[in-house]
Design a binder for these strands. Structure first.
Length: 466
RNA sequence: UCCCCGUUAGCUCAACGGCAGAGCAUUCGGCUGUUAACCGAAGGGUUGGUAGUUCGAAUCUACCACGGGGAGCCA
């Protein structure tokens, strides 16, 4: 095992003269007369360690097998590099070939590959520059999320992945069952709803969760400030570069909190995690800025500096109607904002992230607090350039009568949500929360164009390889 | 799910009705403290699948599969 101080990122930070050994995978090998250069990476950072091997150090038979993809251990001295490209390099006294990689079949070349090709070799793509960087940024982002909430006294809670709530207003769900399927499609309810579910594992229909929000509300109304951070599942047949069937979501939920507090937290949160990742993964972000999207660093700085714009849904519609352009979907009050509308508002009108609030109740979920106008609810969406909606949140309806009538209005089975209504019956309090899609945030941070390339093993309709 | 575009060597692409091509990768040789090194040579193909049109199909048509972009749904 590689121990602290032995990572290649640590070795690269050492002064020349140290006696070290490094382990990792060979990215490239360049040969000169009597001397060989190996670029070795162990995943700890973007920069490779250059290992210099002079003739005679390694038997010819072994040396020819140290090719791109091979796993090696190099023992030697760290010296000042006489050539440009790196400050220090490892002059090898010994190379141990741990695992070779047949160069005639190893799919990764030192040259760049298309993202589509790398996706087909998802089991190996973490060894590529791009995907290694994605994994490190993803880790730093996860770390940042915990640090933000922990620093504010939030409790990290675990909400269930298996659930019986079948309609949380968040899209189609994956049915989970131990019953034989009898040839019928699993989501076919034509035999009547849940005909056999009494025989099923839980005695009722079960699903993979689409959100931990309702359970998080239960805990917020006992513990104050809480957050979940885990996988969620959507069975939507969405075939876009922005959707996954399995993705990770961060959902804080706060008691004694109204929509303004909620918005403030969301803005502070985004700024904090961007700064945190920038500080810790500058090397990887520089790579993304150079090779993937040359605008990301400037954009991220822009987000951290400027206060987010804030407008109501009604104002947004007015802006859109005033805009001098031909909309594919003409905006009018009562319809949801389309992609083209969101882009216009963030990329052209405000040129920065904006928070849109107070949407018509008809286009939002049942649990959002009704405004005094009786027409809009206390919802907020954070829209950012290039991605669109990155955070969606709301102040929750804390009043029993208003909530239960909203549920009936949206056709929910009030009986099966009695536990959720109980929160309003016993010690209710204004509370609010939001959800952030981890992969959407990663796309924003890295400039990666396809969400399938910011998660190691993406699940999308018709695709569950690896 | 809808609308467009694509599928040719390991990878990225060319050839657009008439002999299947290049760069990179690979193998071999040369040169050089190299930096996605450089120079030379060689090997590498059921042109995604099935049917059809044609004297002749990678090329045109239909259907299917897979991939990409846009839209919807959403995070």
């Amino acid at each position: 095992m590689i121990k602290p101080g032995e990572y290649i990122k640590d070795i690269l930070a050492m002064k020349p003269g140290a006696s070290i050994n490094a382990r990792g995978w060979v990215k490239t090998r360049r040969d000169s007369k009597g001397i060989h250069f190996l670029q070795v990476n162990d995943g700890s950072g973007f920069q490779d360690l250059q290992v210099v091997v002079e003739d005679g150090i390694v038997p010819e038979e072994i040396l020819t097998r140290i090719t791109t993809g091979a796993c090696i251990k190099a023992v030697g001295d760290l010296i000042e590099s006489p050539a440009a490209g790196q400050a220090v390099e490892l002059r090898a006294n010994e190379i141990i070939l741990i695992g070779d990689a047949d160069p005639t079949s190893y799919p990764l070349q030192k040259k760049g590959h298309s993202m589509e090709f790398l996706r087909e070799i998802a089991h190996l793509r973490a060894r590529s520059n791009t995907f290694g960087a994605v994994c490190r940024v993803r880790n730093a982002l996860s770390d940042a999320i915990h640090r933000f909430f922990q620093g504010r006294g939030f409790l990290y809670i675990h909400t269930p992945l298996l659930t019986a709530s079948d309609c949380e207003g968040a899209g189609a769900m994956f049915r989970v069952t131990t019953l034989p399927l009898n040839g019928a499609p699993p989501n076919d309810d034509s035999k009547g709803p849940d005909a056999d579910s009494a025989e099923d594992f839980f005695g009722k229909p079960a699903y993979l969760t689409v959100s931990g929000q309702l359970e998080a509300e239960c805990l917020a109304l006992a513990l104050g400030n809480v957050y979940t951070f885990g996988p969620t599942f959507r069975a939507e047949n969405s075939n876009t570069p922005r959707h996954l069937a399995e993705f990770w979501m961060v959902e804080p939920e706060m008691a004694f909190c109204d929509l303004n507090d909620d918005m403030e937290l969301a803005e502070e949160f985004l700024k904090f995690i961007i700064r945190y990742v920038r500080e810790r993964r500058e090397d990887d972000l520089q790579f993304f800025n150079k090779r993937i999207d040359s605008t990301i660093l400037a954009n991220l700085d822009n987000v951290c500096e400027a206060p987010f714009g804030r407008i109501t849904y009604t104002e947004a519609i007015e802006w859109l109607q005033k805009a001098d352009r031909a909309w594919e979907y003409p905006p009018f009050w009562g319809t949801d904002l389309q992609s083209e509308h969101e882009r216009y508002l963030t990329e052209e009108l405000f040129k920065k992230p904006i928070i849109v609030t107070d949407y018509p109740k008809e286009i939002k979920a049942f649990y959002m607090r009704l405004n005094d106008d009786g027409k809009t609810v206390r919802a907020m969406d954070v829209l950012v350039p290039r991605i669109g909606e990155i955070i969606g949140g709301s102040q929750r309806e804390e009043r029993y009568n208003e909530l239960s009538s909203a549920m009936r209005l949206q056709g929910l089975d009030v009986e099966s949500y009695s536990w959720y209504l109980d929160l309003r019956r016993y010690g209710t309090v204004p509370h609010a929360g939001f959800g952030l899609g981890l992969e959407r945030m990663l796309m924003y941070l890295t400039g990666m164009k396809n969400i399938r390339d910011v998660i190691p093993f993406p699940r999308t309709p018709g695709s569950i390889e690896f």
